[in-house]
């Protein structure tokens, strides 16, 4: 009972000196009705902590993954991240292994590769660059049987380039399509 009386509203007598103005002893000392506050706070803190944990599991990029297409003529392997964030520098690596002679290897990239990206460099430089019905076409030239060709492309994500889109890569020998790799890319703000 004494405790109940001491827990009166602001200005109430509590022992030798009254509680300061606007201090409600029930609420601010005994924390009545505030029991759940600490759990809300802990839950929100847990939510905040979940973000970096998800980041560790590559939810927000930029760990590269390998996508492969293997056909009797060649294997096309694309090593690039599929989850990116605004401003990131990243690399796409295109590994072509010829199982037979490819007379005129041409790599074709869909617009998803270049949309909202800065292409910083392409190494080794293709012998020719063109547009193939709106797609990027890189002429790589002759690849002898059982030999590899690796093309490196360095990109940077435009910070306003946010969203989810498809990204495809095709390997041609002249006009003949040999292999295709289809991916989806997600860009986080």
């Amino acid at each position: 009972m004494i405790v109940e009386e001491r827990s009166l509203r602001a200005g109430a007598e509590s022992g030798p000196v009254a509680a300061p103005d606007q201090i409600d002893l029930g609420r601010d000392r005994d924390l009545r009705g505030r029991g759940k506050d600490v759990w809300i706070r802990r839950s929100l803190m847990a939510l905040v902590a979940v973000v970096p944990i998800l980041g560790l599991f590559n939810l927000f990029g930029q760990r590269p993954t390998t996508s492969k297409a293997a056909v009797p003529a060649a294997t096309l392997s694309v090593y690039a991240p599929t989850r990116l964030r605004g401003g990131l520098l990243w690399q796409g690596r295109f590994h072509i292994t010829a199982h037979r002679e490819i007379k005129n290897a041409i790599l074709v990239l869909s617009t998803g590769w270049a949309e909202g990206m800065s292409i910083n460099t392409i190494e080794p430089s293709p012998t020719g660059e063109a547009s193939k019905n709106g797609k990027l076409e890189f002429t790589l030239g002759h690849i002898p049987r059982d030999r590899s060709f690796i093309l490196y492309m360095q990109f940077q994500v435009n910070p306003t380039n946010v969203g989810h889109r498809s990204r495809s890569t095709w390997l041609y020998d002249g006009e003949t399509e040999l292999a295709a790799v289809h991916q989806k890319v997600t860009i986080f703000p």
Partner: peptide, 23 residues
């Protein structure tokens, strides 16, 4: 209370309120 929070009494009459300090 949501936007600004609420005060918490941590000492009364020369004695620390351990529960509130701990919180």
């Amino acid at each position: 209370p949501v936007l600004d929070g609420q005060p918490i009494v941590v000492v009364e009459d020369g004695k620390p309120i351990q529960k509130n300090l701990h919180r």
